[in-house]
């Protein structure tokens, strides 16, 4: 979908026109964040803008806006280096993706490397970002709790070769999912999803053990 590799068959189509001010309609947030370790946080956020038609002042404004609209972080002037904590890396990767004003955000397990508290905070950020409906997201995860908290529609994929096994609609809005009485419904959904993938998870575990 992000055109990182060519498809073996079929094609992905974007329904409707991308927003006029979108610099990169399909934008990827990588699992390992794919930050340039020799650059600062600001330089990383600015990286996709450098090659656009924006002038330096506009780029500067866009970077500031992206950094401030996301959870405010303490910006260091030093390069982030490879040993940057996951929360710090996420604080650079998400604003970088938002700086190009995407139509659809493709996210590959962006919260998998984070601790529980940071993950909760970032999930709230995602819910806020998706609330106005201006931006869509495709979110890949193995975490069923994240899936039922964030998704409108969950596509359950099989093991290799990846095929669509089932599409599960979540029958409530994201705002409703925050209520206490919704916890039971979400847990039931989570159990249904787990029953769909449990056998395959066992097979995958066996495969790893005998590898």
């Amino acid at each position: 979908m992000a055109a990182c590799c060519s498809q073996s068959e079929g094609r992905a189509e974007l329904r409707g026109a991308a927003p006029a001010n979108s610099l990169n309609p399909l934008t990827f947030v990588f699992q390992d964040f794919a930050l340039l370790p020799w650059c600062t946080v600001e330089a990383n956020v600015e990286f996709p803008l450098v090659h656009t038609a924006l002038d330096a002042a506009t780029r500067r404004a866009v970077v500031d806006d992206a950094l401030q609209s996301h959870r405010p972080v303490r910006i260091s002037a030093a390069p982030i280096q490879n040993n940057c904590p996951a929360a710090c890396a996420n604080a650079s990767a998400l604003p970088r993706a938002l700086a190009v004003r995407p139509a659809i955000l493709l996210m590959d397990e962006p919260l998998s490397a984070l601790d529980l508290q940071t993950r909760e905070l970032l999930m709230e950020d995602f819910i806020r970002l998706l609330a106005d409906g201006a931006m869509g997201a495709v979110y890949v995860t193995h975490n069923l709790e994240e899936a039922v908290r964030l998704a409108d529609r969950i596509v359950v994929l099989s093991r290799r070769p990846g095929r669509v096994r089932e599409i599960v609609e979540i029958p409530m809005t994201r705002d409703e999912r925050g209520a206490i009485d919704a916890r039971g419904k979400l847990l039931a959904l989570q159990n249904d999803l787990w029953s769909l993938i449990r056998e395959e998870a066992i097979d995958a575990e066996r495969e790893v053990q005998h590898a």
């Binding site: 992000a2 055109a3 990182c4 990169n24 990827f28 990588f30 794919a34 996709p48 190009v100």
Partner: peptide
């Protein structure tokens, strides 16, 4: 790292 190339490609650099 290859992921940096893919990242740059995903931003149409």
């Amino acid at each position: 790292p290859r992921n940096l190339i893919r990242m740059a490609q995903s931003f149409n650099v």
